[in-house]
Simulated scan of single mutants.
Amino acid sequence: MNARQTLPVLLMLTASAAPLLAWAGEPVSACVSLGNDQEIVRAGNGDQFYLRDGQAHYRVAFRNSCDSITITPTVEISTNGQVGQLCPRDTKVKTKRDICRVQSIEQITAEEFTRKRNLARR
């Protein structure tokens, strides 16, 4: 394959990978103080949930599965005992039945959050 043939193939591969990169989100590297305007979308089997905090949107993944997140009426997010603090390390999510440890947090787009919310409502 010569250079003229390689370039279109590389461009096509890059374009096809772009949606995957957008889905992955940006890892959160600093703590976030959560406000009162929140919405939680419980999706899947308890491995993660989606959080809207004002105009910011996050995907929060658990270290281990947190089955109770899928059915709990209330959620309390805290880090080192400070309620309303979402951090990349030491954050816990308290449900009616469990306290679950957070593995990772990614900032996602509003569109991705809306997509997840719509899927969860089906």
Rank of each mutant, 00 (worst) to 15 (best):
P19K: 03
F49N: 08
L10Q: 04
S33C: 04
N36D: 15
S16P: 01
E26D: 14
R42Y: 04
L20T: 05
L21C: 10
I40S: 09
A43Y: 12
C31G: 14
A17V: 02
L51P: 06
S29T: 15
V32S: 10
L21T: 03
A15Y: 03
E26S: 13
A18W: 07
Q38S: 13
I40N: 02
A24W: 13
D37I: 11
L21I: 15
D37G: 06
G35C: 06
Y50C: 07
S29D: 15
G35V: 09
P27C: 05
G44Q: 02
E26W: 11
P19Y: 01
F49H: 05
P19S: 08
T14M: 10
A17T: 09
R42G: 10
V28T: 09
L7Y: 11
A24G: 08
I40P: 01
D37Y: 06
A15K: 02
L13F: 00
N45I: 07
A17G: 04
P27Y: 01
G46K: 01
T14R: 07
Y50S: 06
A24K: 14
L51W: 08
L10K: 01
A17N: 03
G35K: 05
L20M: 09
M12R: 15
D37A: 13
F49D: 04
A18H: 02
D37C: 05
F49V: 07
L11H: 11
I40G: 00
D47L: 06
I40R: 05
Y50W: 12
R42E: 11
L7E: 15
A43V: 13
G25F: 02
T6L: 14
V9W: 06
G35S: 11
L20Y: 08
G25A: 04
A15D: 01
S33A: 11
L13C: 00
V32K: 13
V41E: 01
L13E: 00
A43R: 09
Y50L: 12
L7R: 14
D47W: 03
Y50I: 05
I40H: 13
A43E: 15
Y50N: 08
S29C: 06
S29G: 08
I40W: 08
L34H: 08
P27R: 09
L34S: 04
A22W: 11
P8I: 01
T14Q: 10
G46H: 03
L34A: 05
Q38F: 05
L34K: 05
A30I: 06
A30Y: 12
A22L: 15
A18I: 08
A18E: 05
I40C: 07
G44W: 00
T14W: 04
A22I: 15
P27L: 02
